[in-house]
C-alpha cells in the first residue's frame, strides 16, 4: 500500500511537471517563435481580427448582434458565451422581434445571422450574404455606390477553408477597415 502511495504521489508530480507545465511552456516557446502573431491573439492596431466588435451607426457593416462584445467589466475581462435561449423561448422570440425591427428601420431585409447571437458571443464573421443585405444601409450613409460595396465585399470574402470546410465568410473588422479607406 505504501509503495502504491509513493507511485501515486510521484506520478502526480511528474504529470504536473511534464504534462502540465512542460507541455504548455515548450508549446508556448515554439508558438512564439513560429507564429508570434497568432499566438498572441492576431491583434492589430484596431483590435483582434478573431474577436468581434460592436459596430453601431448606419455607416458601418454590422457583425452578429452579440450582446456583450466590449469585454471590460470592473477592470477584468468578461466571460464569453452564447445566449443559451432554447428554441421555444419567449425571450428569444421577443429579442429576435426587436432585432428584426432594428434592421427594418435601417432599410435592411435581415438574414438569420443578423438576428441571432453566436456561440461565443464574439463571432468576428458574417457571411457574404449578411454583408450584401446591409448594402442599402451602408450605401445611403456613406454615399458609396451599391456596386462599389459589392466589389468591396467580394474582395474581403474568405473561405471555405481548403475549398470545402465551412461556409465562406467575411471578417467584419477587416471589411470595415477596407470600407474606411474608401470613405
Amino acid at each position: 500500500m505504501l509503495a502504491q502511495l509513493r507511485g501515486a504521489v510521484v506520478l502526480t508530480l511528474i504529470a504536473m511537471v511534464v504534462f502540465g507545465l512542460g507541455y504548455s511552456l515548450v508549446g508556448t516557446g515554439v508558438s512564439q517563435v513560429l507564429f508570434p502573431s497568432q499566438a498572441n491573439g492576431s491583434i492589430g492596431p484596431d483590435g483582434s481580427t478573431l474577436i468581434g466588435q460592436r459596430w453601431t451607426g448606419p455607416g458601418w457593416f454590422h457583425g452578429r448582434p452579440d450582446s456583450d462584445n466590449p469585454l471590460v467589466a470592473n477592470g477584468q475581462p468578461g466571460s464569453s458565451g452564447p445566449s443559451n435561449l432554447g428554441p421555444r423561448s419567449k425571450v428569444l422570440v421577443a429579442q429576435t422581434r426587436g432585432l428584426i425591427r432594428y434592421w427594418q428601420q435601417h432599410g435592411v431585409k435581415p438574414t438569420a445571422d443578423l438576428v441571432t447571437t453566436s456561440g461565443s458571443g464574439l463571432d468576428p464573421d458574417i457571411t457574404p450574404a449578411d454583408a450584401l443585405a446591409q448594402i442599402p444601409m451602408v450605401a445611403r450613409a456613406t454615399g458609396l455606390s451599391a456596386a462599389r460595396l459589392r466589389r468591396l465585399i467580394q474582395s474581403q470574402t474568405q473561405g471555405p477553408e481548403l475549398g470545402f470546410l465551412g461556409p465562406a465568410y467575411v471578417d467584419v473588422l477587416q471589411l470595415n477597415l477596407a470600407l474606411s479607406r474608401l470613405r
Partner: peptide, 10 residues
C-alpha cells in the same frame, strides 16, 4: 478601435 469607439480587454 477609434473607428467604432470600442474598447476591449481581451
Amino acid at each position: 478601435n477609434p473607428l467604432n469607439g470600442v474598447t476591449q480587454l481581451i
